[in-house]
Design a protein around this nucleic acid. Structure first.
Lengths: 226, 226
DNA sequence: TGCTATTATTGTAAAAAATACACAAAATAA
DNA sequence: TTATTTTGTGTATTTTTTACAATAATAGCA
């Protein structure tokens, strides 16, 4: 009998955001044991000749049909009995997408995939609740010092959307005027001449995140902090 | 022939600090291939029934004789060819110790262990230079918002030692008076009636990090930031 | 068309925090 | 006793953060 060895997997906490629904996580319904029929975050074993990030993207594609643009390593979970059958150490990642950009699961491979608001998560397989907790914490703090929020917005967005996003992720009300003042001082947004087309009330200008401006900010040794 | 599988290892960047010598990293001289005779950070394969942190502590004990008090996961490095022979994914940790508290290697197991100042590192095996880079960055930023620096100082220390430590880790001069004012406002230090015994100049009071005070700071929702 | 409701835009005064900066006190070495 | 080194302390200035309200542009409705 072969000597048992440690298996290595990757798992992904994919965050989605919509201004009406707030922050969600992408879950799949497992169709194999253990936890068959239960909900889990997408993931699976890493292949012998595959990079970790490639493995994440592959599993995401297979299980949910999604390709994430922003993907970052979160933490590696290696407790002895986190998988009831074998020793499986998992490298967890988190990613950001716009749910509206994708058609979920049904069209794709195996499991059923679904968005769940982070305040209404079902019971989860393995230690996936813990992984999501860590991911939320990380996202909450990262949003303040890295301009990653734009991954969750349309390319062009009214300023109020950015404001709502930050209030949602930080979980506290933020003064609109002070927030705008601070953000605009960074000079990483481009104000377009277009206005938002729909909705009631005075239409606001649309903005775009200007990556080049952000890089030149960094080059000057300044820091993004909001 | 058995199907090849991914091997899992842990590696540790152990930082040591002395006010005369600044920041150092603990390295070992490898006595097996690959990179036999070269320098590397301590580490090795994780056992099938062993937690990741336990694996780190075991390897550190075996290879250097050191036990670290503060140990934290850094990042997981999994590039395809980071080990020239097999696919090895490594979970890197970093730890903080006082070099003066330990007798190194020679007394212990296999390899030769030695402290190297972070500005005078030798050429390193595998991707260990990259791992150390990431660890230094992490330590540099973490020192500002977590009170981990005390792991690098004696239990009782004159304030000037704390000041020097922060100047060293942040790599910039810090105004003595403003730094002290800010730190003392946190109320996490206990000022002892003892004075420093040796050295020239006016003797300074000794201080102690007061963990309980720090916890109550956190409970009040305040943040450590220096 | 005019009224109401809704959202967007803009500025300033007050408070708090960060910075710059200098001199006196306690010890050792010469 | 004098010079040198290190510690200890306070204030004025600048910068940043916070709190806060009135006006403009649209849509829907009477």
């Amino acid at each position: 009998m072969a000597k048992p060895h440690i298996r290595l997997s990757v798992d992904a906490v994919v965050f989605g955001y919509e201004s009406q629904n707030g922050l969600s996580v992408l879950l799949i319904k497992r169709n194999i044991d253990p936890f068959k029929g239960g909900w889990a975050i997408p993931g699976g074993l890493v292949k012998e000749n595959e990079n970790l990030e490639d493995a994440v993207q592959r599993e995401l594609k297979e299980e949910t049909g999604i390709k994430v643009n922003y993907l970052e390593q979160l933490y590696t979970f290696g407790d002895l009995h986190r998988d009831p059958r074998n020793r499986v150490v998992t490298v967890a990642y988190y990613g950001l997408v716009q749910p509206s950009k994708f058609q979920l699961a049904a069209a794709t491979d195996a499991e059923e995939a679904q968005w769940y608001n982070i305040d209404q998560l079902p019971k989860l397989a393995f230690d996936h609740d813990k992984i999501i907790d860590v991911a939320i914490q990380r996202l909450r703090s990262k949003i303040s010092y890295q301009p990653i929020g734009f991954e969750l917005l349309d390319e062009k967005f009214p300023f109020s959307e950015l404001h709502k996003l930050y209030e949602c992720l930080k979980g506290v009300p933020i003064d609109r005027r002070n927030f705008k003042k601070k953000f605009m001082q960074l000079e990483i947004l481009e104000e377009l001449s277009e206005k938002r087309k729909i909705g009631k009330g005075r239409p606001g200008s649309l903005f775009k995140f200007h990556q080049k401006k952000y890089f030149s900010l960094v080059k000057k040794g300044m820091v993004f902090e909001v």
